[in-house]
Amino acid sequence: MGKIALMIRQIRQNKGIDAPFELTPDTSLREDLGFDSFDLAELTVRIEDEFGIDVFETGIVENVFDICEKLNLK
């Protein structure tokens, strides 16, 4: 989950948001992190570059748990 956290922090920072954030499996990408579809698309590209998997290809991803599950991360 550490790598995902780093990616999320980078996306937030690129938007000018430096505030710390809490990341748990239940953290909602849209609700808690305020990600819009452009942010989510950026996240999928960054994840794909790191893990070789498009996490949105096979369905909806709501929270951090969904990502970890698709990537088989504990």
């Binding site: 579809s37 452009f38 989510l40 698309a41 950026e42 999928t44 590209v45 498009d54 949105f56 290809e57």
Partner: peptide, 9 residues
């Protein structure tokens, strides 16, 4: 770059 969410990023 092809993307399942936006068509392209």
């Amino acid at each position: 770059r092809r993307n399942s969410l936006l068509g392209n990023v």
